[in-house]
Computed example of a mutant assay.
Amino acid sequence: MTSKEIRAQVPPMIIWMADATIKEARRGITGKTGWKDIKRHPYNIPEVEMAGEVLGRMFNECAAGIRQALIDMPEEMDGVHDYSNLNYFDEFVASLEKRHTANLREADWILERC
């Protein structure tokens, strides 16, 4: 699915929350978090782990694929700066499509109650 198709099916608040999660993960990947801790591989940064779990509830993709798509996004998308020609959500979907198809996850009501 393209970003435009996803936007047609998903409420704007969900897109906004996904965009905020993607920005936070990109901030961690580029090191603009303000934390002065040990250097880790971007895959293991807490912000990226959290984004993998959160976005995994939206997309039919495992957390590992989502983490890699976050890492593969353009370098200038550092999570701090907004660009008029680049949208974090749209670029994430494009990055996810390069690896797999970006499909929305269908709700599993039995698992959602837990």
Rank of each mutant, 00 (worst) to 15 (best):
R113F: 09
M17W: 10
L104P: 01
I66K: 07
E24K: 14
F92M: 03
M77W: 02
V48Y: 02
D72K: 12
R7G: 06
E61D: 05
R57K: 14
G79Q: 02
K4C: 02
F89A: 03
A20Q: 15
R26E: 08
A51V: 07
I71V: 05
M50K: 15
Y88C: 01
A102G: 04
E5A: 15
T101M: 08
E106M: 08
R40P: 01
V93L: 04
R40H: 10
A102M: 05
R113Q: 13
E75T: 12
I29E: 00
A102I: 01
R40I: 12
I71D: 00
L55M: 14
H41C: 03
M50G: 05
V54R: 11
E5F: 07
M77Q: 04
D82L: 08
F89G: 02
F92T: 06
K4Y: 10
P46N: 08
R27D: 08
R67P: 06
E24Y: 09
N103R: 13
D82R: 06
D19H: 12
A20W: 06
W35Y: 13
A51M: 04
I38N: 09
Q9M: 06
R26S: 08
E91H: 00
T101C: 04
R57A: 08
A25D: 09
V80D: 11
M1H: 12
S84P: 02
R99C: 02
T33W: 04
T30G: 01
T21L: 06
A25F: 06
P42Y: 08
A63E: 15
R57Q: 13
A18H: 06
M13P: 03
L111D: 12
